[in-house]
Amino acid sequence: MAEVGSDLFDLAPPTGQQRRDLAAALTDEERSLLLEHAEEAPFCGLSLYEKREGIYCCRLCGLPLFRAGAKFESGTGWPSFTTPFSADHLQTIEDRRYGMVRAEIVCARCGSHQGHVFPDGPPPTGLRYCINSGSLEFVAVGETLPDRLGRGAPEGLVWRG
C-alpha cells in the first residue's frame, strides 16, 4: 500500500467554536493535559501498554501524530516514539517550566500539549518523543480515524497502516 502522506490532512486550526466544542468533550484530566500543558504521572497511561498495530492521534482534534511502529519502550513511564507521523503534524516550542529548558511538543493543527522531545532516543533518529497517554487517541488498523473537525481523512477514515 502506498504511504499515507501528511498532505492528505488539513492542518488549518479549528475555529473558535470548534475548539470550544472539542474542549467541552474532554475529561477534566484530558483538558488539564492538552490545554493547560500538565504532565501525567509516569506508568499510569493506557497508551504506554498498547501493543497493537495502528496510529496515535491527537486526543483533541484527531490529527495523526505517531505510527505504532515508531513506539519503543524507553523505561520512562510515558509512551515514547522515535519519529512523528509527519514532521509538519507537530510543532516544537521552548518550555522553561520547572527550572529547566525542554522542547515541548504540541499538535500543529490545534496547538494542544502532547509532551516533550529529547535527544536521547534510539536510532534511527536519536530522538525520544515522550508523550502523555491522555494526549493521544489510539486507532488500531482497520478502525475509523477520528474526524472531529469534519474535514475528512484518507482511506474513507479507516486506518489501513
Rank of each mutant, 00 (worst) to 15 (best):
V4T: 08
V4W: 05
V4Y: 00
S6W: 04
D7L: 12
D7G: 09
L8G: 13
F9E: 00
L11S: 04
A12N: 15
P13A: 02
P13I: 15
P14Q: 14
G16T: 11
Q17M: 06
Q17L: 09
Q18C: 13
Q18H: 04
R20Q: 15
A23D: 04
A24E: 12
A24I: 02
A25N: 14
L26C: 01
D28H: 13
D28N: 13
E29D: 15
S32A: 15
S32V: 00
S32P: 00
L34I: 14
L35W: 06
E36Q: 09
E36N: 14
E39M: 07
E40I: 06
G45F: 13
G45D: 05
G45N: 08
L46T: 13
L46W: 08
Y49A: 15
Y49E: 12
K51A: 06
R52P: 09
R52E: 04
R52H: 10
E53I: 12
G54M: 03
I55R: 08
I55D: 01
Y56C: 02
C57A: 12
C58Y: 00
L60F: 04
L60G: 08
L63C: 02
L63D: 00
L63F: 10
P64G: 14
A68H: 01
G69F: 04
A70C: 13
A70E: 14
A70I: 06
F72R: 08
F72M: 10
E73I: 09
G75E: 05
T76Q: 04
T76W: 01
W78E: 00
P79G: 00
S80H: 03
S80C: 00
S80Y: 09
P84D: 05
P84E: 03
F85G: 11
S86E: 10
S86H: 13
S86F: 04
A87L: 05
D88W: 13
H89F: 02
H89M: 04
Q91D: 14
T92A: 06
T92H: 13
R96I: 07
R97Y: 01
R97Q: 11
R97S: 11
